[in-house]
Amino acid sequence: MTILTRRRLIGSIGASAGGLLLSGCDRIVASPAVRHVLGAGESLTMGSQRLLSNRSALAREFSALDMSPVFRTNGNTNPDTDDYDSHIAEGFANWRLIVDGLVRRPLSLSLAQIRAMPHRTQITRHDCVEGWSAIGKWTGLPLKLALDAAGVLAAARYVVFHCADDFDGDPYYESIDLIDAYHPQSILAWGMNDQLLGVGHGAPLRLRVERQLGYKQAKYVMRVELVASLDKIGGGKGGYWEDSAGYQWYAGI
């Protein structure tokens, strides 16, 4: 038998009032209509950022002195598949980057070919959606060169990056629009901090799209696909985190 003390009574009234408040609030928070209205804020944010910035406005580039001493890894740090393991063993000699979809000439490029093409090096800040930032040096193929080589068709509106890693069987992928794809700092990086890109950071190729958050910087890129719509890709929201946890497709903020 429990003795109901005054303190316990007040405590339990408080706790249940709090609980009621919480469940009421959570019902509002989870309601699809509310999420829909809030989604309007998202389009407004993307629209006004695009309005305020030049298409090719650059993310800040830092000096070597500003670099993070240790650049932490995040997300998947190794795809851990038999296929990928053999690529590691072969030094990625047989890795191919496919560029296809709405293009005139689908491409299949080896890393040797990619590294022989012009490259861009930039020291930029990587911002995780969680709030931390790290500054690193990236070297890679400007995405524009790959797109131009493949000849993007007029119907294409998005570039989808298919990756070698997955979360519980759901493959990682990301997508950006053509404004970001043709941005001068958008590169398929094969080098980081003056070395070849390591496995933890997405070897052998990782996207850098410097005006957006970390989850857009797809690692282990195998295939670049040009599409007219994102509806039929993955869960239809344009990326693994967008599909699985409702993260914003436009990650400029």
Partner: peptide, 9 residues
């Protein structure tokens, strides 16, 4: 804190 705004401003 917005990487997009840092490029714009």
């Amino acid at each position: 804190m917005s990487p997009g705004m840092d490029a714009a401003w």
